[in-house]
Amino acid sequence: MKGRAHKYEKPNIDTDVIIPGPYLKIHEHKELAKHAMEGIDPDFPKKVSPGDLLLAGSNFGCGSSREHAPIALSVCGIKAILAPSFARIFYRNAIDGGYLLPIEIEESTMNKISDKDELEVDLEHNKITNLTKNEVYFMKPFPELIAKIVDAGGLMNFKFDKER
């Protein structure tokens, strides 16, 4: 997985900022993507190319259980979010829905990465390579069950792959 990082280092970026309340009635994924991160940067969807990464402060995705949040980010192109910590419902929505990967990194790692750096994520070795700065960082590995769900591409695939 390789892409450019978009850095929003503020902690506690919440779901009202990621996809504001009035859009909760919308369930068309492409429509939701047009409003991703509207509360912090209305131009966000225009800046993202498919495969890009989001770099964010701690407790990313706190607040509501709206699955609209990981959906909006993933449909506008984000494949993974790197942050020191995630709010629990956002974390499991991202994984169970198979939308994007919430990857936990050290606070110091976040500080080393700059906006627009080119990163490569290696899930097999829990390693992130900064191709722009030529640096290597470590990511926190996923717990066993969660890694299996990630491998399957979400909870539903995990269930139906097992049954097949």
Partner: peptide, 20 residues
Amino acid sequence: AGLGHTDIAYVLMTGQTWFK
């Protein structure tokens, strides 16, 4: 505890969910 759409769908199908 609160869950998202995919997790609720899974509960509706299986009566179960995972927890840490």
